[in-house]
Design a protein around this nucleic acid. Structure first.
Length: 308
DNA sequence: GGAATAACCTGGATGC
DNA sequence: TGCATCCAGGTTATTC
């Protein structure tokens, strides 16, 4: 499932092809891919066609492509194409006129001054992902909106999303304070995108395993040094996964060229129910966690009952 | 206001 | 072979 490393691989792959490109045309094949764009397909196509893309930016699992203003009167309300891949979304770069992808929902035809005519294809099997046009807002801290963003702006739809742990402007102190306030499972906090973005079920399980923390430990019970360790492991896991091109279990996650990542071979806990813990050899277990699963080692991730 | 839960959705895997 | 059921899970609206 696309989490921070997978989305960053997509962003980095898109950037050289879309930065400076002009949108020649937009085809919306399935309007469900515009659930975040309240004004519908006709409005999306009309407002996007002819616009020049300035960059490819990302915060957590959200991507956006800032656009040049339509005209001088529009300069005060900068806009961007915002995208979220959901569970199975893909953004693919294809030659102009390439055949339809399976589950293709939206196609942008673009012209780049160096790379010529290309197609940016948004394909999504489970239709949890979507694109939208949104207004960019100033960031409260005055820092760049996210990775790849040249300006201190962020789409309105992304403004409530916290920065991710690999963002230089991530606030470690605010993260620690949020954990101290939360009387819920630490894993739930890791998945709360308003506290820390970019972490999903896979990397939450991996970081908790690496930090030797039981996923059902109440967040507010974690000692300060344990929180430091957890944040360090989150960063380590995300960085390693990014270096290996992300995690691919099936065809649902690929980069812009349709290639899978390799981090699935490096997973220590996620999806390894019954396999020996790489640290102690104890069989890993899986427990139900809201509508999903948690994977952990019952021996080296003991549940914390009190402050330590 | 914080926390918990349901709903959205498709296709692969599994069981009968 | 065909059908039914389960499962995967990010985000958001709703409910408590």
């Amino acid at each position: 499932m696309p989490e921070l490393p997978e989305v960053e691989v997509v962003r980095a792959g898109l950037e050289p092809a879309v930065r400076g490109a002009t949108v020649l045309g937009v085809e919306v094949l399935d309007e469900r891919a515009l659930t975040r764009h309240a004004l519908g397909a006709v409005d999306f196509e009309r407002r996007l066609t002819g616009r020049r893309i300035r960059a490819a930016a990302r915060r957590g699992k959200f991507l956006w492509l800032p656009l040049d203003p339509r005209d001088v009167t529009d300069a005060d309300a900068p806009e961007a194409v915002v995208g979220h891949l959901g569970m199975s979304g893909q953004l693919l770069l294809r030659d102009s006129g390439a055949p339809r992808e399976r589950h293709e929902r939206i196609r942008l035809s673009i012209a780049h001054p160096d790379h010529g005519d290309l197609a940016v294809v948004f394909a999504d099997q489970r239709t949890f992902g979507s694109l939208a046009l949104d207004v960019l807002e100033p960031t409260p801290d005055g820092r760049a909106g996210g990775r790849g963003a040249d300006e201190p702006l962020v789409p309105g739809q992304v403004a409530h999303i916290a920065r991710d742990p690999l963002d230089p402007a991530f606030d470690d102190r605010a993260f620690r304070a949020a954990l101290r306030r939360k009387r819920v499972d630490v894993k739930r906090v890791l998945l709360d995108q308003t506290v820390v973005s970019g972490v999903g079920n896979i990397y939450a399980d991996e970081a908790l395993w690496a930090a030797r923390i039981h996923p059902e430990t109440t967040a507010s019970l974690l000692a300060t040094r344990t929180v430091h360790r957890l944040l360090a492991e989150v960063r380590t896991v995300l960085t390693k996964a990014l270096a290996e091109g992300g995690t691919s279990f099936d065809a649902q996650y690929v980069n812009v060229n349709g290639q899978a990542g390799y981090f699935a071979h490096s997973l220590n806990a996620y999806g390894r129910t019954g396999a020996p813990c790489p640290r102690c050899g104890t069989p890993l277990v899986r427990v139900s966690f809201t509508n999903r699963s948690s994977h952990f080692c019952p021996r080296c991730q003991k549940q914390q009952r009190s402050l330590s």
